[in-house]
Design a protein around this nucleic acid. Structure first.
Lengths: 209, 209
DNA sequence: AATTGGTTTAACCAAACGGTCAAAAATAAA
DNA sequence: TTTATTTTTGACCGTTTGGTTAAACCAATT
């Protein structure tokens, strides 16, 4: 079943091979840096076959981009909708984010590049996955009222949480080289610590004590 | 005076026009996305002239990249070396960073893309500007000992500070669209608040009280 | 065995690209 | 003014790139 404009649920083996190869290449090299020939080679097929299933580079990229979020967004959405205290929710979000990014460390740069190229796309993708800014800010406002927390605007808290989770992966190789001078042991230990460290850092900052 | 391999202090008007045009194009479109013809057009000159002064695309990119940091790094270096309490130092660093990035909002993505392409380059550039990881971690360790601060590994504190300062600019357009739905008034107010907000967020998190 | 329809391939194409070159134009030196 | 040097240009080149096409392949149906 060819892709072109209509989405299909059952993907052939070849389509899966193409998507997997395209994901790998696009994420590492970006839209401009990726080569259709390279994607075909990675998938072990002829280049024309890539065009046969996905028509052109842009359409293939879109397919990869939306596929990447189909697994992750429902997880985040689930945590956001759950009825737990704000601090627990923060811990859960940070955990999910860092877990996911440890498995997909190249994703932040991939996504952020696409955000700057087309800011509406991800915003719409979030909304179509039931993630609405008003829901989140509203929940945070309630959470801040109910317990003894410092006043902080929800928008800043959201951006701070995302910053602390996402940025280190975007700057990963730099941190490795500059901060740990290539010592992979210390470097990996650092990234393993971040889940609890970031949670603690945020909670400390907003809890009155 | 042509560039090629030897750096020169006195740059001709044409060289400055090229560098300025290249900065604009490279920062917006990246190394792969930028076109030499586009840079020449932006500078209002012939494409061959760009090659005459900077030989090739890679060399021109390097020139732009290093030039970008020649203004900024000395500022950071100055603050780091100053003998002031850790909390004041954090406030100064956050201030310098956010001030600089408000004037150069496209820079984070530009730099982060290059970091992932060539992690050593920026690490070396930092060191050649007298910014050494041991100095910074050492200073933070001392700062944490001297006053009543929570224990936090210096590496985490450094990465947290950079995350909170840099990431929001990399995700700027996304924040505008999703969080503020294109309301530029609220959006600008948000970014103006961040300098004090980020400082407060970090200090709150590390000060015992 | 022949037909049909989807799949895969090798060969090919036009456009775009980074880069070169010889000559013209402008500037400096004699 | 003439000569030498540097700067600027238009035309050009080889390669790479995304994309197309016609034919080959293959499995299922009749």
């Amino acid at each position: 079943m060819i892709y072109h404009d209509i989405k299909s649920d059952s993907l052939s083996e070849t389509e899966l091979k193409i998507l997997s190869a395209a994901r790998k290449i696009f994420i590492r090299k970006g839209l401009d840096g990726a080569r259709m020939q390279e994607i075909a080679n990675e998938a072990g097929i002829n280049k024309a076959l890539v065009h046969y299933y996905f028509r052109n580079k842009q359409k293939l990229f879109e397919a990869v981009f939306t596929e990447v979020f189909r697994n992750f967004l429902p997880q985040i959405s689930g945590v956001l909708k759950s009825e737990i205290p704000l601090t627990d929710k923060i811990e859960a979000i940070v955990g999910k984010y860092i877990d996911f990014l440890q498995k997909n460390p190249y994703l932040p740069m991939f996504v952020m590049n696409e955000i700057n190229r087309n800011p509406d796309k991800l915003a719409n993708l979030l909304k179509s996955n039931g993630i609405e800014p008003e829901d989140i800010t509203g929940q945070i406002k309630n959470g801040l009222d109910n317990i003894e927390l410092r006043d902080i605007k929800p928008e800043h808290l959201i951006v701070n949480i995302l910053s602390l989770c996402i940025f280190p992966f975007a700057a990963k190789s730099m941190i490795e080289k500059f901060l740990f001078k290539g010592d992979l042991k210390k470097f990996n230990a650092f990234f393993n610590e971040r889940k609890s460290e970031v949670t603690r850092f945020i909670i400390n900052s907003i809890v009155k004590q």
